[in-house]
């Protein structure tokens, strides 16, 4: 499964800055998504802010796509990035679900 073309193409000089910025924003937006989601769930934020969390996830996914295409990633890395995006999507749901269960069991 070696990606033959991993390094075939040079990254264009003008593409470095967008790559660095988009890959940083991946986690910045990802952090906002997860943070807002959790804050709403523990009632630090009002419920109507939830869609904003999902908008941030979409921005994350877009940045991952942008970063990947500017870097000319191959098929395998592209799949790895999709897995990471889905993982990030599920993460706060899973965390909340599990934490909630433990709290339910232990505090009632």
């Amino acid at each position: 499964m070696i990606e033959e073309v991993v390094m075939r193409q040079d990254i264009a000089l003008d593409d470095f800055l967008p790559i660095f910025i988009s890959s940083s924003l991946v986690l910045v937006f990802g952090g906002f998504y997860v943070g807002i989601y959790t804050a709403v769930k523990v009632k630090l934020l009002k419920k109507w802010t939830m869609p904003i969390a999902y908008i941030f996830w979409m921005l994350t996914a877009y940045c991952l796509y942008l970063m990947g295409s500017l870097m000319h990633v191959g098929e395998f890395t592209a799949k790895a990035l999709v897995v990471a995006a889905i993982g990030l999507f599920l993460l706060p749901h899973a965390v909340y679900f599990m934490q909630h269960q433990v709290h339910e069991e232990n505090e009632h």
């Binding site: 679900f97 269960q101 069991e105 009632h108």
Partner: peptide
Amino acid sequence: MAKTSVWSD
């Protein structure tokens, strides 16, 4: 005592 789930074990 609520039901225990594998996720919180």
